[in-house]
């Protein structure tokens, strides 16, 4: 079993007719993802990739094709509205890839998620990947391999790096989850850790974090109290100066809060095996697995 997505996931793509939407929906289709429909306002009635019907609204798409997940690839100015539309339609899983959504838009989205039926992954996420079952994101498929390691991360390319290291060492992945690099996000580390802990396919967990905020410290507390499986962790930004935004909107040390040192100390104290540098992530996971 994987978490959040599997072979039966029926995927809707919001923003499917844009350049990015077309490219990535094709990549997902080629991987075997069951994309059932697309939505672009004003483009209803068209077909993309010769077989995927496009609708004007999510509600119409749901009535006709019954998706249970939506991947959002729309520009930042319109993305929050697209998430709200998916929440309104009651779609249980929404993965928002878009980077650069205004923070106050996401604050409203986050508030509307409370009490809704929807789990949001992201925004500013590379998406979800369950190797061999379903790809719902923009990650390069070829580096993945089906297996038993779950990965949860705030960064895209750094996740690919970890996946590659695992695959090269012969370890596959159960699911990789990019929770997104923004300050306000839907699903947190803790939600994903909990799901991995309960997932029988997952035997070890890699947590990839970075400077900014205190999500990794909270995750460390959760790991210490609840996680029964071996955990390896890498935190990016040991060399980052305070007060400077390092690419991701959320990657900034404010005053003395959000430093890599504080996060590493918390994760270490929680029993996680710490990767010494980004080339050590796969090896750290293997060290954690061999501890027992």
């Amino acid at each position: 079993m994987s978490i959040f997505i599997d072979k039966n996931t029926r995927v809707l793509v919001q923003g499917i007719t844009g350049k990015t939407g077309l490219f990535h929906s094709k990549q997902c289709l080629d991987y075997g993802t069951n994309i059932v429909a697309g939505v672009t306002p004003g483009k209803g009635g068209q077909k993309v990739h010769d077989c995927i019907p496009v609708f004007n609204t999510v509600t119409e798409a749901c009535a006709a094709t019954h998706p249970n997940a939506s991947m959002i690839l729309v520009p930042p100015a319109l993305a929050a509205d697209s998430i709200l539309e998916a929440i309104d339609a009651g779609i249980p899983l929404v993965v928002c890839i878009t980077e650069g959504i205004p923070t106050q838009d996401m604050v409203t989205v986050k508030r509307k998620l409370q009490g809704s039926k929807t789990r949001l992954i992201g925004a500013n996420s590379p998406g979800l990947m369950a190797p061999g079952k379903c790809k719902m994101g923009i990650m390069p498929a070829s580096i993945h391999k089906e297996g038993s390691i779950g990965i949860v991360s705030r960064s895209g390319t750094l996740t690919y790096e970890a996946v590659w290291q695992l695959t090269e060492k012969g370890y596959g992945q159960s699911t990789t989850v990019g929770i997104g690099g923004d300050p306000i996000i839907g699903t947190t580390y803790i939600d994903v850790l909990k799901a991995f802990n309960e997932d029988p396919q997952t035997e070890g967990i890699i947590l990839i974090g970075e400077i900014g905020g205190s999500a990794e410290e909270l995750a460390a507390e959760y790991i210490r109290e609840h996680i029964k499986k071996p955990v390896a962790a890498f935190i990016g930004g040991c060399s980052a100066p305070a007060g400077k935004r390092m690419g991701h909107a959320g990657a900034i040390i404010s005053g003395t809060a959000g430093t890599a040192a504080s996060k590493i100390a918390a994760l270490k104290a929680a029993g996680a095996e710490i990767a010494q540098h980004p080339a050590d992530i796969g090896a750290a996971m293997i060290r954690a697995l061999n501890r027992k």
Binding site: S153, R154, S155, G156, T157, L158, T159, Y160, E161, G181, I208, E210, I211, F234, G236, G237, C238, S239, A240, K244, M246, G247, H248, A251, A260, Q276, H277, P278, A279
Partner: peptide
């Protein structure tokens, strides 16, 4: 020179880990 913010930051870190000093992100 790196692609992706997370990897860019981690690349600075690995330079520092081996005793070097990054000039930029």
């Amino acid at each position: 020179l790196v692609n992706g913010a997370g990897l860019a930051m981690a690349t600075m870190d690995i330079i520092q880990h081996f005793g070097g000093k990054p000039a930029n992100f």
